[in-house]
């Protein structure tokens, strides 16, 4: 027995030594170990591609890998909740998108905007209305006329009730263009329903359905923005048609509130450099994102607050929230 006892003492000593060494090692500089990057949406989707691309491109600038783990669920809130449960040491970051932001005013999210450190906006993408190229609607005028004549008859495929898609649709209904929202959270099925002619209109960002645009199976008829989108100069924007609703989709990187300011600075600088690489620029272009997507630090935080306020206002107007 004595022999065993000695062994245990030795084991404990080694452990203590390693422990001491490791804590000393930890405090050296930031980042000194891999940074966990939580993707708040499922594998293979638009957010996932963005996170994996960004992680790959940022690694050289931070000097540590950024292993990506997906934690989808509850409109991106499962991953966010986990980020907020982790230590605010800058070793856990996550992505965040406009659809998740919309859950703060509805109360579905359990946190407030101020619980989050807003690092950088990586992609800003206006939403479009798409129709089938060989379908009944030639352009937005034809679609608007049809919605006026048969309120509620035209079906639009969108994400779900209470989401940005729904808000936009209710806004249009208020202007006399009522369509029925057919919700489907699975993107593939949503696109298939429009391609197969089961729903007439699709609300989406252009980057997610590039293959159908390139193959001329779907075409955009309107962009929700203040000006026309450079890649589609013939497509009218909502402002010129008198619809003052924009609500772009955006993707960004966040951390938990309380991460030391110099760590945030390190991260912002690294992401900015990553976003200037040609790979990223090409990626952004392929996704039909705004070329001026980058926005960092305080400016970004103010912008997010503005977006959330306009969502909240519209939700109150349509009775989605009280």
């Amino acid at each position: 027995m004595k022999k065993h006892g000695l062994k245990w003492v030795g084991f404990a000593l080694v452990l203590a030594l390693m422990l001491g060494a490791s804590t000393a090692f930890c405090q050296e500089k930031y980042p000194s170990r891999p940074i966990d990057f939580i993707c708040t949406w499922g594998v293979g989707g638009g957010s996932d591609q963005m996170v994996r691309m960004l992680a790959k491109l940022t690694e050289p600038f931070l000097g540590v890998p950024l292993p990506v783990s997906n934690k989808p669920g509850a409109s991106g809130n499962s991953g966010t909740t986990d980020l907020l449960a982790a230590k605010a040491d800058g070793y856990t970051i996550a992505n965040y998108i406009a659809d998740t932001l919309a859950t703060i005013p509805t109360g579905q999210a359990r946190y407030k905007m101020d619980d989050i450190e807003w690092i950088v906006r990586t992609q800003n993408m206006p939403s479009f209305l798409f129709v089938k190229t060989d379908g009944p609607f030639k352009d937005i005028q034809a679609l608007l006329k049809a919605t006026q004549e048969n309120p509620g008859k035209i079906k639009m495929a969108g994400l779900g009730f209470g989401t940005i898609d729904d808000i936009t649709l209710r806004y249009l209904a208020g202007k006399g263009h009522k369509m029925t929202l057919v919700p489907n959270p699975n993107p593939g099925e949503r696109y298939a329903s429009v391609l197969g002619g089961h729903n007439e209109v699709l609300y989406e960002q252009a980057g997610d359905i590039r293959q159908y645009l390139d193959a001329k199976q779907l075409k955009p008829v309107m962009v929700f923005a203040e000006s026309r989108f450079p890649a589609f100069p013939d497509v009218p924007c909502s402002k010129e048609l008198g619809f003052n609703i924009f609500l772009p989709q955006f993707r960004c990187v966040i951390a938990k509130k309380g991460v030391p300011a110099e760590h945030i600075k390190t991260l912002v600088a690294a992401f900015e450099k990553a976003m200037q690489t040609p790979e990223w620029k090409k990626f952004n272009e392929d996704q039909y994102a705004d070329p001026a997507s980058y926005m960092g630090g305080d400016q970004f935080k103010a912008w997010v607050a503005g977006e959330m306020n306009s969502m909240e206002k519209l939700m109150k107007e349509f009775g989605i929230i009280k």
């Binding site: 452990l15 390693m18 422990l19 490791s22 170990r33 891999p34």
Partner: peptide, 16 residues
């Protein structure tokens, strides 16, 4: 401190 122990174990095994 369990987090530090775990990290120390990882380092000892050359995982990190």
């Amino acid at each position: 401190f369990f987090e530090d122990i775990t990290l120390a174990i990882y380092r000892a095994l050359f995982i990190m």
